[in-house]
């Protein structure tokens, strides 16, 4: 039994149940498939999270985001600037206690280099209802080339716990034709 030592001193040479051999074959093949599918998706898929990352001082990052917002600002919403960068431009999003800053207006089908970083604690970039979720760290600048495929108003919520205002931390991305 499983709670007593194997009765045969040499159990390694015991025959293996046929069902077990068949199932092992299935699991090995399925494991290999899942493994290589992850690699394959880097070539055939359109959704692969970039790993382009730079070390950055939080205050230096904040200065760049502010310069970016200043340059392409088109309005304001509840005190947050609304920014409309041209297609292909580097776009900056700043995470801090407790907001995603600024509000972006993007064009459908255009690609943007989105820079993501935090100036204080860790935050979780969660674009809703699309459901794209990316971790945001202070001191690390993550660059993602993003292409919106649908129009409308999207919310950014925070899904990494960041203190008592965590559930108030929101932002916005609008996508137009």
């Amino acid at each position: 039994m499983a709670i007593s030592p194997p009765p045969k001193r040499i159990w390694w040479n015991e025959p293996v149940h046929g069902v077990e051999i068949g199932w092992i074959a299935v699991t090995v093949l399925w494991g290999l498939f899942m493994f290589f599918f992850m690699i394959a998706w880097h070539f055939i898929g359109q959704q692969n999270l970039s790993t382009e990352t730079y070390r950055v001082q939080p205050h230096a990052y904040q200065a760049r985001v502010e310069a970016f917002a200043e340059r392409f600002k088109v309005g304001e919403e509840n005190g947050t600037p609304v920014v409309r960068p041209p297609a292909g431009e580097d776009v900056y999003i700043l995470a801090r206690l407790w907001e995603w800053w600024p509000i972006l207006e993007l064009k459908r089908g255009q690609s943007y280099r989105i820079h993501l970083s935090s100036v204080d604690w860790q935050h979780g970039f969660s674009l809703q209802p699309t459901n794209i979720n990316i971790s945001v760290h202070p001191g690390y600048e993550h660059v993602i080339t993003l292409t919106p495929t649908e129009t409308g108003q999207f919310g950014i919520i925070c899904n990494e716990f960041c203190g008592i205002g965590h559930h108030r931390m929101t932002g916005r991305i609008r996508v137009t034709e």
């Binding site: 030592p5 194997p6 045969k8 001193r9 040499i10 390694w12 040479n13």
Partner: peptide
Amino acid sequence: PEAAPGPIP
């Protein structure tokens, strides 16, 4: 358990 009949794998 019976004595090992040979070297252990």
